[in-house]
Amino acid sequence: MSYPISFNLLGDGPYAGTLDGRILKYQKLTNSFMDFATATPTSVNKTPICGFPTGSSFDYTGRLFSCDITTGVTVVGPFGGLAKALLFPLKTECLSFSFLAWMLQENQNLYFADASGVFNFTTGAEAIRTGDSTGRLLEYNPKTKKVTTLLANLGGALGVATAAGASYVLVSEFIAKRIKRYWLKGEKAGTSEIIVVVLLDQIF
């Protein structure tokens, strides 16, 4: 199983995360994927041990920031290799079940979702069954290394996307069946609103 996650700023890719903790890069000339990065030193095909990158985004220097549902937020250089952990699950205020990162090029902050503050990857079905609403929309500033909670009490926050011009960020709620918009700029900055109610998984 793999997740399509990102293209770099040169248009190379896509890059995809796999259940054994690898990030793969698509090679157009050979029509195949090659290993680009790993979340842990070894890949043992056991997600709780080796990780599972579910969403990534490049910054302007070519670094790839990734959200991993078991190893947290990581970063790897333009040439790949072993990813460095920036935020660890269960050791900070966030990341019990992190999903889908999006680097906003205008301010170089990373926006990502934590699907649940109670359940993790192996108990995700319970989150759906109980109608869990402990998810969050988070902002990570690579310069200050600070994590800010923008929205809390989200029902299965899985998808994140940002608007051109850095005016707002969208987050999808799988359990609550809706998409919320959080304003980053303008008169509504710091506020949120529901913009659509729909059955969905992620937004990209």
Results as ranks from 00 to 15, higher is better:
Y140V: 06
D114C: 02
T40E: 11
D35G: 12
N45D: 07
M34W: 10
A163D: 14
M1G: 11
M34I: 15
E139G: 09
A157M: 13
G81M: 08
K143Y: 14
Q105P: 08
T122H: 09
Q105Y: 12
S98G: 04
W183G: 00
L184I: 01
R63A: 12
T122Q: 07
P41L: 07
S43C: 05
R63V: 02
N120M: 12
T74Q: 14
L64T: 03
W183Q: 04
N8V: 07
S66A: 13
A85R: 13
V44F: 02
F99Y: 14
F97D: 03
T144G: 12
K177W: 01
T130L: 14
G190Q: 01
L10F: 09
Y60C: 12
N109S: 10
F52E: 08
S116M: 01
A161P: 03
T191W: 05
S167K: 15
Y3A: 02
S192I: 01
V44D: 14
L100Y: 07
S116D: 00
T40F: 00
A163E: 15
N8E: 05
V73Q: 11
A83P: 07
S192D: 10
K188P: 02
P53R: 10
C67S: 15
K91H: 13
T40P: 00
W183R: 07
P142C: 10
T42Q: 14
T191P: 03
E139D: 13
A125S: 12
K146N: 12
G51C: 09
F65D: 04
Q105L: 14
I23H: 01
G186N: 07
S56C: 13
Q108N: 10
F88S: 11
G62R: 04
G11F: 11
I194P: 05
G131A: 09
T134Q: 06
L184P: 00
D201T: 05
K84P: 04
L170H: 05
N153M: 06
S172E: 08
V171I: 13
R129E: 15
